[in-house]
Simulated assay, not measured.
Amino acid sequence: MIDHTLLKPETTRADIEALITEALDLGTYSVCVSPSMLPIPVPDNADLKVAAVCGFPSGKHDSTVKAVEAAQAIRDGADEIDMVIDIGAAKEGRYDYVQSDIAAVRAAAPSPAVLKVIIESAALNDDEIVACCIAAVDAGADFVKTSTGFHPAGGATVEAVRLMKETVGDRAEVKASGGVRTFEQAEAMIAAGATRLGVSGSRALLEGTTPSGSY
């Protein structure tokens, strides 16, 4: 259920190679990386998906730019795209734009690519969360995702995950990301409805120790 994640700006190729080695050792579902790090050297026989972020972390990219970025990531070997919405548009109530922004990326990265939509839930109120989730599923998203892990408002909360799952129902899944640092937190997110977790300190979480430097 874990997307083993490394999105720090200072990430090097050696860091990505170490990420893949650790992901394979831990048996995580995927690795999640910045698009500039693609393609990455996943062994051909490995059961490991590759996710890349899009419009990250601000979401303040033109929809055309996001679409190009997503399409290039798929060409470079990504199986999944984690895109960031324009949070300001959501705060303004421009949900038609939020939906069209997502739809542009969906068109550029069609199924079987998996599209996860980051709504930055900590920066939104409940009504905004619901509206963004509806926009995401109406645009064809496979997942709604809580957070980038980089926003000062914070990351995932159990309450947000529960609301998001109640909103999307069976139409999409929920990914909890940002501040999921302990096994207990992970269990709580799953109980609230998350089926995927974005974690940078995956080994520490699974081993019950305190991660350092994770988002």
Rank of each mutant, 00 (worst) to 15 (best):
K91A: 02
K145T: 09
R75S: 14
V53Y: 07
P57Y: 11
V117S: 04
R94I: 04
G155S: 08
A67Q: 05
A135E: 03
A71G: 14
V130T: 14
V105L: 09
D138G: 00
I81V: 13
C132T: 13
I81A: 02
S111T: 15
P43M: 11
A90G: 09
I118Q: 03
P35M: 06
V117M: 09
C132R: 05
D47G: 01
G140Y: 13
Q99G: 05
M37D: 01
I74R: 13
I20C: 00
G88T: 08
L24R: 02
A141R: 06
D138M: 08
R75Q: 14
Y95T: 08
P35V: 13
V68S: 02
C32K: 02
A131F: 00
V105D: 01
T146D: 10
Q72Y: 06
F150L: 14
S147V: 13
R106M: 11
E120K: 10
A70N: 09
I118M: 10
F143I: 12
A73V: 04
V50F: 08
Q72R: 12
A103N: 02
A139M: 04
I16E: 01
A90W: 07
R106G: 01
V105C: 00
A109D: 09
P35Y: 13
T146W: 10
A18Y: 04
E128C: 00
P43E: 14
L38M: 06
A51D: 08
A52I: 12
I85G: 01
V33A: 00
E17V: 13
D44L: 14
E120A: 01
V98S: 03
L24V: 02
D25L: 10
I102E: 01
D126I: 04
S30A: 15
V144C: 09
D15R: 03
G88R: 07
D62I: 02
A90Y: 02
S58G: 05
K49M: 12
V65M: 10
L38V: 05
S58Y: 14
A71D: 13
A122S: 15
V117I: 09
S63K: 14
D96F: 04
V137T: 15
I102P: 00
D142P: 10
F56D: 00
Y97C: 00
A108R: 08
T148C: 12
S30P: 00
E120N: 13
D101S: 07
V53G: 05
D142L: 12
D101V: 11
A71T: 05
H61R: 07
P110F: 05
T148Y: 10
I134N: 07
S100I: 05
G154W: 13
R75K: 15
G155Q: 12
E17M: 00
A104T: 07
S100A: 11
G59P: 12
A67V: 09
P41S: 04
D76E: 14
A71M: 11
A52P: 05
